[in-house]
């Protein structure tokens, strides 16, 4: 528990409309460019995934994910209250998007 505790305001909700995979993402910042509302800024460290600066402004249009030149770098992460339900037609079991 060595992590320093800062006096921070509440984190914007939702804070993570997308999740980056730093293993695949090479920080090309294409998503920064295609974003309609400038949710992201480039990471100060070159080659790293962008910083989600304005997650509260995301309207989930999907351009960043759809246009990513390295698939798998970036995935949608729907806020909990927006997760979908469906039902298996054969068994009747109700399922949920619980990725």
């Amino acid at each position: 528990m060595a992590k320093k505790t800062y006096a921070l305001p509440n984190i914007t909700t939702p804070a993570t409309p997308v999740i980056f995979n730093p293993e695949i993402c090479n920080g090309c910042n294409h998503c920064v460019e295609v974003c309609q509302v400038d949710v992201y800024i480039p990471n100060p460290e070159k080659g790293k995934p962008p910083v989600i600066l304005h997650p509260d402004e995301c309207w989930y249009c999907g351009c960043c994910v759809n246009d990513c030149p390295r698939p798998g770098s970036i995935a949608f992460n729907w806020p909990v209250q927006q997760r979908a339900y469906w039902k298996d037609k054969a068994t009747g079991k109700v399922l949920r998007d619980s990725q």
């Binding site: 249009c61 759809n66 729907w78 339900y85 039902k87 037609k89 399922l95 949920r96 998007d97 990725q99």
Partner: peptide
């Protein structure tokens, strides 16, 4: 459609299969 591709794709990733599942 404008904003729905990422929805179909993330539902699929979450296990939704339109051939088997009824969407709520």
């Amino acid at each position: 459609e404008s904003t729905t591709r990422n929805i179909t794709e993330s539902y699929e990733k979450g296990g939704f299969d339109p051939a088997k599942h009824l969407l709520q």
